[in-house]
Structures are given as structure tokens and as C-alpha cells.
Simulated scan of single mutants.
Amino acid sequence: MKVVAVSQRVDVIPERGENRDALDQRLVTLLLVAGFIPVPIPNGLYLQTPDGGVIHDALDDWLNAVSPQAIVLSGGNDIGQCSARDLTESRLLDHARSHNLPVLGICRGMQMIAHSEGGELKPVTGHVRTRHTLSGQIVAEVNSYHSFALADCPEGFEVLARSEDGEIEAIRHLSLPWEGWMWHPEREAFFASHDVHRLKKLFGE
């Protein structure tokens, strides 16, 4: 079974003075169902000072030890909300590019892929706690939990699906095995067969 590195959201717990990494157990289950071994990656392996100086960098050591064969950028947190997570995911994308690894970006993860390629985000309404019917190369009904959307398709990518109101819901890189989905496949009561099949195809069974 292929090992998949999975990024984690950051939950701030003020009463305990803690910043906790968190991962929905349903995402772990989805990856297992698809035939992969998920390994959560801690935020904070690579930290910088505000002026860009490196505090410590153990991310390469982690990647060498785990040797992931694919990467999932999970949902949660807005870009810019947690610098440790932003830095971690940016480095993961650099690693994936240099090693030609498959990447799936889920919700914020898709936004992070677009952001890393110079794409712009915009606020969007009507996309939180609702469902959409997709059109395009992916035709399906999916959930929606995001308040930001892609302003346009980043260079080097194509749009795979749009919602009824024309917002970009899925993208694919034209040369790298990278996809972004704005929906959360792990949050369905029963995992959609089209999501599982597409995940297997992207990562390679």
C-alpha cells in the first residue's frame, strides 16, 4: 500500500495555550478505503522568523524518513491564518514537484495549490454548508464548506468542474499528477464511488 502524507489543520485552544494539529478521522478512513496508508505530517517542522530567517528545519528529514508516494493537502484554516501550516504545505508542494508525486488538494488544499501557482482567491457566498451539482468533466452532486473560491484558473491548470453559479470546483495540472477538489469527499455519509475511483486513479493503485 502506498504511503500518503496528509497535511493537518491547526486548531488554536486559547484556554490551554495550545496550537493543536488536527485531522478528521474520516479522511484517514477514506484513504484506507481507497487502499492507501495515511501519515499525518506535523506543522512546525519548518519554522521561520517574521523576516524570513529559519528557526529550524526538520521537514526534509521527515520526508526522507517517511518517503511518501503521494500527498493530500487537507481542508480547514484560511491561507494566511497559520504561517506554520502555510510553510509546511508550500514545502510539500515543492517536494511533490521535484519528485513528480501525485497531489490532491481538498478545499483549502485546492486553494493552496492555486495560491502557490500565483492564483488569486476571492470571497464567495452560498458555498457554506450546502450542496452543488457539478458540470464539466466531473458531473456529480457534492458538499460545499468554503467561503473563498478561485478567482480564475491558475496558469498550467485546467478546470475540471464548476458549480451552478459558475465557480471553479475542481482543477487539474496539465503536466503534473495534481488535482484540487473544493468539496470534502470525507464528509459524505457514504463515500462517493466517483471520489474513491478518482482518488485511486490519481494516486495509482
Score class of each variant (00 low, 15 high):
E141K: 13
R108V: 04
G53S: 12
A70V: 09
D195G: 06
I37E: 10
G109R: 03
D165L: 01
E15I: 04
G204I: 00
V139T: 15
P50N: 07
S90L: 10
F191D: 07
G126V: 05
A170S: 13
R20C: 12
G156L: 03
L134Q: 04
F36T: 08
D94W: 05
I138K: 02
H99A: 03
D195Q: 12
A140V: 08
S67F: 04
S193P: 08
G166E: 14
G180E: 06
M182Q: 15
E15R: 09
R85V: 05
S116M: 06
D61C: 02
V72L: 06
G119T: 09
G17D: 03
E117I: 00
S144Y: 01
S144M: 01
S7K: 12
E15C: 07
S98E: 15
D195S: 15
A114K: 03
D11W: 01
S90K: 14
G76H: 05
S90C: 11
L73T: 13
V142K: 00
A140K: 04
V33H: 13
T49Y: 15
T133G: 10
S135P: 06
N19I: 00
E188N: 15
A170D: 03
A5M: 07
A34P: 10
T29G: 01
C107K: 09
G44L: 01
Q48I: 09
V124R: 00
S74M: 01
W181K: 05
D165C: 00
I168N: 02
I106F: 03
G53V: 00
E188R: 01
G35Y: 05
E89K: 12
Q137W: 00
I13K: 14
L101S: 03
P42Y: 07
E164F: 00
V196L: 12
N19S: 13
V103W: 07
D152Y: 10
L174P: 01
R85I: 05
L104G: 06
H184I: 06
D51R: 12
G204E: 01
V12Y: 10
C82E: 14
W62A: 10
V128R: 10
E179I: 08
R162F: 00
G44N: 03
E169P: 02
A140Q: 09
G105F: 02
E120H: 09
L31I: 10
E18N: 11
L150D: 13
R91G: 05
F203R: 02
I79N: 11
F36S: 05
A170G: 05
N77G: 09
P14G: 09
E169Y: 05
D61W: 01
Y46I: 11
P177C: 03
N100V: 12
A149P: 10
N77E: 08
G80E: 14
G109I: 05
L92T: 14
S135V: 05
V139M: 04
L174W: 02
G75N: 15
P38I: 02
D195E: 14
R172K: 14
E18W: 13
L47Y: 00
T49G: 07
L63S: 12
E179L: 04
L23T: 11
A58W: 12
V10M: 13
V139S: 07
P42A: 00
P177V: 08
S175A: 02
H99V: 03
H184Y: 09
I138T: 07
L104W: 08
E120M: 00
G76S: 10
L176N: 12
H173Y: 00
G156T: 10
